[in-house]
């Protein structure tokens, strides 16, 4: 089950609700405005790719590790993509130690779907010996400071780490795999981002702060591809949405997705 009840003072809750009525937020943002983003890449020398993303006060690190593995039986001619996320107690008093809970699993699976649906990693290009040896790309996500919207921060960190990852070139000598010193980029074909909304009452706010998440009725995440299509959808929590509100959110999400992507491009040479 989920972590113990997280509490927000009624005064603060009422303030947020009153401000929302006027189209304002606690931190001065507009309802459809995202927080400032900082992306650092190549922060972990031992990882083939890595990135730390600051989304306001939320901090997430993602590392990319590469392994040569036997492909899955049902996809013998494809590389392997594995996403794992952990909400460690280091990041927030509301996270508890222990094996990944359902929040961790949901986070990693949403990121995994967004990447996989648009084939962001071209897994067909990660085959070394068809049916026998392929590259496995492991994306491991760790929350470092939870100040709301871990999904979008995790997606940004993952794609930033993937875009900057370097894979050793290999040489095949009589079916023996030899890793060379020379390195090359991973085959990344798209830059998907996620855009997450908190629904508070009948209002939608983009990129929710932690306090907004505490009082939100529902959460809605869109995965958006480089050309504005949808590569993932995930509703969370026990609130509901009218279909019309989802379509409204979708249009905002496509605009916000471009802002996220512009941040990525401003930090990373693609």
């Amino acid at each position: 089950m989920s972590a113990p009840e997280k509490i927000i003072p009624t005064v603060k809750k009422n303030t947020i609700l009153l401000m929302l009525e006027k189209g304002e937020r606690l931190d001065g943002r507009k309802l459809d405005e995202i927080r400032k983003i900082k992306i650092e890449t190549d922060v972990i020398g031992n990882a083939e790719g890595s990135a730390i993303v600051h989304l306001g006060n939320t901090i997430v690190i993602a590392g990319v590790k590469l392994n040569i593995v036997t492909p899955y039986a049902d996809t013998p001619n494809q590389g392997v993509q594995i996403v794992n996320a952990e909400l460690i107690p280091l990041a927030s008093p509301v996270f508890e130690p222990g094996p990944p809970g359902e929040d961790d699993v949901e986070l990693s699976r949403v990121i995994d779907r967004a990447l996989r649906s648009v084939k962001a990693i071209d897994l067909d290009k990660l085959v070394i010996i068809p049916g026998k040896k392929v590259w496995a790309v492991y994306i491991d996500i760790y929350a470092l400071n939870h100040s709301g919207n871990l999904i979008d921060a995790s997606m940004l960190a993952s794609i930033a780490a993937l875009l900057t990852a370097k894979k050793p070139k290999i040489e095949l000598v009589n079916d023996q795999i030899k890793k060379l010193d020379e390195r090359e980029k991973l085959p990344i074909t798209d830059i998907p981002v996620t855009v997450t909304f908190a629904k508070i009452g009948d209002k939608l706010v983009v990129d929710p702060e932690y306090e907004e998440e505490l009082i939100m009725d529902a959460r809605l995440t869109f995965g958006i591809t480089s050309n504005g299509n949808i590569c993932a959808l995930q509703k969370g929590l026990c609130g509901t949405f009218k279909p019309s509100l989802i379509l409204e959110a979708l249009e905002i999400a496509r605009k916000v997705a471009d802002e996220y992507r512009n941040y990525i491009k401003s930090f990373i040479q693609i």
């Binding site: 779907r113 649906s117 299509n229 949808i230 590569c231 993932a232 995930q234 509901t240 009218k242 979708l250």
Partner: peptide, 13 residues
């Protein structure tokens, strides 16, 4: 009211 919404694959708006 929609109570569950998920998607994988690519969908245009």
């Amino acid at each position: 009211e929609i109570t569950l919404l998920q998607a994988d694959g690519i969908f245009t708006p």
